[in-house]
């Protein structure tokens, strides 16, 4: 194991970086699309059911299949990998944004409106700040998914830590398989830890205080 690390230290850094980079882009794209979409959906209950239905179906497709389907359209490499991962990050964020926005106390929304907030102000000043903890936990979940599934992206030539695992499988080198798997797990745990700090920081202070 130690041999694996010392002999491949250069490759480890490079592959980890690649892995992180693919997952991060997919996650950021997912946030950019899913959070606003979730907010809009929370105002359109009927459309929400249809859209959330479609995204949950997408979620059930096997990830290898999606990656394979991408090849005829986008070829191989990082782009199809990022797009496939992006699709996977959508549902947890979308779902949590929708739930978070809907779980904001009705009385508070009514209070905001009756004070003279417009609908947009109500979203910006009341609903979104109060939904942040729920939205953030959706983002955390998506981040961990993205990192673990990015392993498969190596299969369509996107690089990343998956390369170690696939190489290990092809060359029958168990230390490559285990080393790659451990690195992916560690990366996922560290990311989740960092995002939990972000979640704490992003949660409005008034929701954390105690009497």
């Amino acid at each position: 194991m130690i041999d694996f690390v010392t002999q491949n230290s250069g490759a480890i850094v490079q592959k980890t970086w690649e892995h992180l980079y693919i997952s991060a882009i997919a996650l950021i794209l997912g946030i950019i699309v899913a959070v606003p979409l979730g907010i809009v959906l929370s105002k359109l209950k009927k459309t929400a059911k249809i859209v959330l239905g479609i995204t949950s179906i997408l979620q059930t497709l096997p990830s290898l299949a999606i990656l394979a389907i991408m090849i005829p359209f986008l070829g191989v490499g990082k782009v199809p990998a990022v797009i496939a991962l992006f699709i996977y990050t959508l549902l947890p964020i979308l779902n949590n944004t929708y739930i978070g926005m809907n779980s904001v106390n009705q009385d508070l929304k009514a209070a905001g409106i009756s004070m003279g907030m417009t609908k947009i102000q109500s979203i910006g000043m009341v609903e979104l700040p109060l939904a942040i903890p729920v939205i953030m936990s959706g983002i955390r979940l998506s981040a961990v998914y993205a990192i673990s599934w990015a392993t498969l992206a190596s299969y369509i030539g996107a690089g990343g830590l998956g390369d170690f695992i696939f190489n290990g499988l092809n060359l029958y080198q168990p230390e490559f398989i285990i080393g790659g798997a451990v690195l992916v797990t560690v990366l996922a745990l560290i990311t989740d830890f960092i995002l939990s700090k972000v979640e704490k920081w992003a949660t409005p202070k008034g929701l954390k205080v105690e009497r």
Binding site: A110, A111, G116, K205
Partner: peptide
């Protein structure tokens, strides 16, 4: 909206925004 800003409103459940000071 302008009307509601000119009329004070106190609700039963207090309805203070928990995330605001």
């Amino acid at each position: 909206v302008a009307l509601r800003r000119s009329i004070g409103y106190v609700i039963q459940q207090i309805g203070l925004m928990p995330h605001m000071t």
